[in-house]
Design a binder for these strands. Structure first.
Lengths: 242, 242
DNA sequence: GCCGATTTGTCCGTATGTATC
DNA sequence: CGATACATACGGACAAATCGG
C-alpha cells in the first residue's frame, strides 16, 4: 500500500480524468498550479504526470500544457492489460470466474523445458494445467510452471482459487515484472477437448515469464484464449530515433 | 535527436546490457558509482535506470542494487514492439520490405467510421489499403485512415515508401502516443485474396490510434498479420494494489 | 540482536534551457 | 519581447531495506 505523495497525486488525477472531471482533449492545470493545490514540489507533480503519460492518459506538450487524451474503452470481450491474476481480470471485466484443475504434477526441468520456459535444466517445478471459465463458458486454457522452492505449500485447492493471492498474501512474494509474448497458434487436441471453438482453428496465446522483486523468475505461463473472447490493450510511446 | 544527459546514460547502459558487458542476473554498479563514472547528479542516473526498468532490462531492488534481467530474444517471426513504421520493423527483423498499394481514396467519416476509428463524423480522411511483403512473402494487410488536414501532400507514391518518414521528415509531425488493441479475427475475403494463409481461418489484428505531439489523433490503422509470422512483445510491471 | 555502512526510494528547492503564446 | 509552461539537471536531506561484523 503505497502512501507515497506522488502516488496519491497520480491516483487523484487519474480519477479526475476517468470521471471526466477533466474532459477529453482538455488541458490539465499547469504544474505550477498543481504544486500549490497539493502543497508539494514540482518534481513530485511531474512524477505523477509521468505515470499518467505512461498509461496513455495524458500527453504533456512543451510550452503549452498537459492534455487529457483518455478515452473510455468498450468492454465487450475479455480484456487483458497489466499483470493480473485471472480472478482480478474477471472482476475487472465483470464476469464470474471458475477454475477447473486438469493436471497438477511435480516435474524437473529438462533441456526442452529449459528452452521453452527459461528455467535451468534440473530446476524442480510445479506444473499445472487449468481450465478457466467466465460466466460458465470455458474460454481459457492455462499451462503454468512454478519454481517449487519459491512456492512451497502450493496445492491444487489453492490453484483452483487464486495462486497469486496465495503467493502475495501467504508467502509474501512481491510480483514485479512480467515479460510477455503474444502469438496466434493452431488449436491443439487439448484445446479442442475443453473449449468450444466453433470452427476456429487458432488460439490467442500469451506466454509470460514472471519475476519477483529479487529479479528471480518464479513462473512461466502459457495462456491460451478463445479468439472471440480475447482482447489485449497497450499504450506505446515513440522513442526519439538516433 | 535527444542529447539529454540522462538519455546518453540510458543508451550507454542499454548497450552494455545488450552486449552482455553486464551478465544476466548480475548487479549493475551502484547509483553512487555511476554518478562518479558519468559525472552527473544522482537524479540523472536514476532517470536512466527508470527507463531501463520500463523496458524490462533491469530491476531495482531496495537496499540491494539494480539487477540485470535482460535476456536476448529469438527472432524467428516478425516481432512487433513499440511504435514503428513497417520499414523500421522490417529493418529490425532483418527482412526486405515491399509495399503494394491496393486502394487509395479520400473519404469523409460517417457515423460508422466514427465509432470504429475515433474520428468525428464529417472529418476528411485519407483511406488506404496496403499489402506488406517481407522477403517477397505477402504477410500483412494494412487499412489506414489519416486525417487529411494533418497529412497534406500524401500521395500513393509516398504511401508505397514510408508514410512515417514523410510525416516526420517532410511535415515535421512528431509521433508520440499510440493506443493499441490486439485481437484475433476471422479471415476476410480480402485477406484470402492477397495473403497465402494455408488453412488458417484467423488473422492477428492490431488496431491503433496514433497521436501527434499536440495530442491530436492523426491516424487510425488496422494491421492484419498472418498468424505464423506474428509475434508481439511486451513488458509489464505490477502496480501495487490499493 | 544491534549497529553502522551501503544502497535504493522519496521529496524538496533551485537554476537554467527551450517552446509557446 | 516578456510571461507562461514544460524539460533538464543539480545538490541535499531523510527514509527504508539490506548486509556484514
Amino acid at each position: 500500500m503505497p502512501k507515497a505523495k506522488y502516488d496519491q497525486i497520480y491516483r487523484d488525477l487519474k480519477e479526475k480524468i476517468e470521471t471526466e472531471y477533466y474532459a477529453y482533449q482538455e488541458m490539465l492545470p499547469s504544474e505550477h498550479t498543481l504544486v500549490e493545490e497539493y502543497g508539494c514540489s514540482r518534481n513530485t507533480v511531474r512524477r505523477a504526470i509521468a505515470g499518467l503519460t505512461a498509461d496513455g492518459y495524458v500527453q504533456p506538450m512543451h510550452g503549452k500544457g498537459v492534455r487529457n487524451i483518455f478515452q473510455p474503452i468498450e468492454q465487450t470481450a475479455f480484456t487483458v492489460g497489466g499483470i493480473e491474476s485471472f480472478k482480478e481480470s474477471a472482476a475487472r471485466n465483470r464476469k464470474v470466474p471458475f477454475t477447473r484443475i486438469l493436471q497438477f504434477a511435480e516435474i524437473t526441468a529438462d533441456k526442452k523445458i529449459e528452452r521453452k520456459t527459461g528455467f535451468r535444466e534440473g530446476t524442480e517445478l510445479l506444473y499445472m494445467q487449468r481450465l478457466r471459465s467466465l460466466d460458465g463458458k470455458p474460454l481459457i486454457l492455462d499451462h503454468n510452471y512454478f519454481r517449487k522452492d519459491l512456492t512451497p505449500g502450493l496445492t491444487p485447492e489453492i490453484a483452483a482459487r487464486s495462486v497469486y493471492d496465495y503467493l502475495e498474501g501467504e508467502l509474501g512474494i512481491t510480483i514485479s515484472t512480467s515479460k510477455r509474448t503474444l502469438t496466434v497458434e493452431r488449436v491443439t487436441q487439448v484445446d479442442e477437448k475443453y473449449i468450444e471453438l466453433k470452427d476456429y482453428n487458432c488460439m490467442a496465446v500469451i506466454t509470460s515469464q514472471t519475476f519477483d522483486d529479487n529479479g528471480i523468475q518464479f513462473e512461466y505461463t502459457q495462456s491460451r484464449h478463445r479468439p472471440d473472447y480475447f482482447r489485449f490493450q497497450d499504450v506505446a510511446t515513440r522513442h526519439r530515433m538516433k
